[in-house]
Write a protein that binds this DNA or RNA. Structure first.
Lengths: 194, 194
DNA sequence: GCCGATGTGGCACTCAGTGTCAATCGGGCA
DNA sequence: TGCCCGATTGACACTGAGTGCCACATCGGC
């Protein structure tokens, strides 16, 4: 029952995120230093690193949580669905509701244009893969002891790659088309007639 | 005709690479500083950065060149092959002959275990994608003006992802199975009956 | 009111990467 | 041979991310 402490901690966490994101979206990611964020948020430089391991985590911190949501969604899919279909359906549940579409577009652009952000983003996607692979292996009936069975890894990695491709196209199209339909088009291109 | 200058430059380049790789493989990547490398190679810290933009580039520098080789291999595939088949065949031509298998295994392990290296490696793969997509779009007959046609991007990204998955399985299997067959298995898992 | 646990700020430090400038070295030319 | 031009080099200083350490304040339980 650490009600007050954890509440203030969450409040500070949110305050840093808000302040930092505003600075990022106006000045740019690289042009914003940790000192800028700390000063604007009214905390010390050292405390910033107690909430976020890296500057990139401020932007991408929620992605890990999303990964766990996708895992739960995947496990909730009925066994009647084959692995690929279940994965696609699970991916459809990702909805980042923290920002409006226009802000999301700016964030996407920033992530794609900033190498360090882009790299971290992909690292997070790799962590998603590790989260999702066990369930897919189960659905495929793969021998858990056989590290040479790459089917599950390939399927998971491919689906997430399709999401990545869709996200990039979505930014190119300035959000004029829903992300979901772009993802469906990418998935369909990879699997013509399942 | 900058024969001598470019030759000495290439010699220094190779010397730095050799020295650095030896340090990386013995002490570990993160435990090796640029100063260590510069001292061991007999150059100044500043000169190191005149040959390599980042520490990661010493390990992954050749990957960009490989990307161009794959592009050439893809363009050389006959038009009778569909895009997917041509991509898979083009990928089969990647052969890193600079190191023996055992050393390659160590390097792969290091790349996979070191987050910054892993991230850079994937960034390079993204550059491969940009290199290969135009040719795949041509083969698909995609409208070059339509940024919403994600088919080519999805196919290219998927094939490279399969190569990634195969590489990871190859390190897990300690190189006991040829990389090519792992790649074929991954590709077959994504496209069951083309 | 005391005590241990935890969050915080400040300081110093390492390391990657960049800008600058003077010195040096090799090649071409008279 | 001797001189000039351009590229390379080394040394120094600087920024910025990230970490370790320590003293101090604060909150909860006793």
């Amino acid at each position: 029952m650490s009600s007050l402490w954890s509440r203030t901690r969450n409040a500070v966490y949110g305050e840093i995120t808000r302040t930092a994101m505003e600075l990022f979206l106006t000045r740019g990611f690289d042009a914003t230093t940790i000192d800028d964020i700390a000063a604007a948020a009214g905390i010390s430089r050292r405390s910033f690193f107690r909430y976020f391991g890296t500057k990139e985590d401020v932007v991408l911190g929620d992605l890990i949580a999303s990964g766990d949501l996708i895992r739960q969604a995947l496990e909730a899919r009925p066994n009647s669905e084959d692995a690929w279909t279940a994965l696609c359906n699970a991916l459809h549940t990702v909805k980042d509701t923290a920002y409006d579409d226009e802000t999301m577009l700016k964030i996407f652009r920033m992530v794609h244009e900033t190498p360090s952000l882009r790299a971290r983003s992909i690292e997070k996607h790799l962590q998603w893969q590790a989260l999702l692979t066990p369930e897919v292996r189960r659905r495929l009936g793969a021998d858990p002891e056989n590290p040479l069975d790459v089917r599950a890894d390939a399927l998971v990695a491919t689906v997430i790659t399709c999401l990545d491709v869709a996200g990039e196209a979505w930014t190119r199209a300035a959000g004029s088309v829903p992300l979901e339909s772009l993802f469906d088009a990418a998935a369909a291109a990879v699997r013509p007639h399942p």
